[in-house]
């Protein structure tokens, strides 16, 4: 093994021959509990009969038992599994909580209907959506990503360039600043009715709105970032022979980058909101539209399934943004980990 860490060292130092009672109540104990929680979930699926008609109960129960077996195996061989083993150990408490949660959910919905059906579908109903309605769901995911990505990239680029320009040049600031103050604070969704009949297609209208929602925070934060760069940096660069283009590209922009990322993060949040609303109202594709469609058919399981996917996508996008930031801003100390 090429990586060597403190935890490896302590693990290697501990005698491995026998698993003692102390181990069971310690790190092994949590893993064992996680395994039991998932076993309970699997058995709860298989033991009681369903109150409704769901086709995936059996496979879900078997799947849960397989997961329980994996957790059990992983727990007792974590020392030999390297990073994966450590990761499992770290997440074991969460696996306990999550296993208990799905068990409770299963029992409260599919088995005894403590929660009113169909508003609270059981886990197997959601699994059924992922297996049986996959093509439509995937189409929606791709449509959403395409729309979001296009609008976001356009908005972020325009916002960045505008922010740098008004932060750098007072003349440009004189003209752009009032426009920004007038249009910026307006929620992008307020443009929806106008955008949908002035733009040639609902797709281009939505792209415009997403770009607008992204552009405003990116512009403002880039601008404030550029404006707050210490003049000492410019002094140093100028005495070393820097021309204005160097001052903008190699001093102002790198110094403003931490602010720019705050803007990109805020823009991501507000553009998600616009994306979903635009898809629900105008665009006949995407996860927002899928939600709308599921509601029309009272297909509650589909709504939950789509919501879960949407949450994973949004979270993934933010993770990607933070990773990029961490890569670009390694020189900063103490940045927040997402």
């Amino acid at each position: 093994m090429s990586t060597y860490s403190v935890s490896d060292a302590t693990a290697a130092a501990a005698p491995r021959a026998a698993i003692t009672f102390a181990d069971l109540s310690g790190s092994y104990g949590v893993g064992l509990a996680a395994s039991l929680a998932w076993l309970a979930f699997g058995l709860s699926c298989l033991y009681w009969p369903d109150v409704g008609d769901w086709s995936r109960t059996g496979s879900l129960g078997i799947g849960a038992i397989v997961i329980a077996a994996f957790i059990l195996f992983g727990t007792f061989s974590a020392d030999y599994l390297g990073n994966a083993g450590q990761a499992l150990r770290k997440r074991a408490p969460w696996l306990v909580a999550f296993g208990a949660f799905v068990t409770l959910w299963e029992v409260a919905t599919a088995k005894f209907a403590w929660l009113p059906l169909p508003f609270f579908p059981p886990p197997q109903a959601i699994l059924e959506v992922y297996t049986d309605d996959l093509p439509k769901l995937l189409d929606s995911v791709f449509a959403s990503i395409k729309l979001q990505l296009g609008g976001y990239v356009i908005g972020a680029t325009v916002g960045f360039i505008t922010g740098v320009s008004i932060g750098w040049s007072q003349k440009i600031g004189y003209w752009v600043h009032p426009v920004l103050r007038f249009i910026g604070p307006l929620p992008a969704t307020a443009w929806l009715p106008i955008a949908f009949f002035t733009f040639p297609s609902s797709w281009s209208a939505s792209t415009f709105l997403i770009a607008l929602a992204t552009g405003f925070p990116v512009t403002v934060l880039t601008w404030s970032g550029v404006a707050s760069v210490s003049s000492a940096y410019y002094d140093v660069a100028r005495t070393l022979g820097a021309r204005p283009s160097f001052l903008v590209l190699k001093v102002a922009i790198p110094a403003a980058l931490p602010h720019v990322f705050v803007g990109l993060f805020m823009g991501l949040g507000s553009s998600f909101a616009v994306l979903v609303v635009a898809e629900m109202i105008g665009v006949k594709a995407g996860l927002g539209w899928y939600l709308q469609w599921a509601q029309g058919w009272a297909a509650y399981a589909n709504m939950y399934a789509a919501l879960i996917v949407m949450s994973l996508l949004c979270s993934g996008a933010i993770t990607l943004l933070f990773r990029t930031r961490d890569r670009l801003l390694v020189w900063q100390k103490g940045v927040v980990k997402w």
Binding site: A232, D235, V236, T239, L240, P254, A255, L257, W331
Partner: peptide, 18 residues
């Protein structure tokens, strides 16, 4: 300013991103 006259300022003012 001209690079023939270079200043070492009282504060080092290094560029933190470099």
């Amino acid at each position: 300013p001209h690079p023939s006259r270079v200043v070492v300022f009282q504060d080092p003012t290094l560029f933190p991103w470099r």
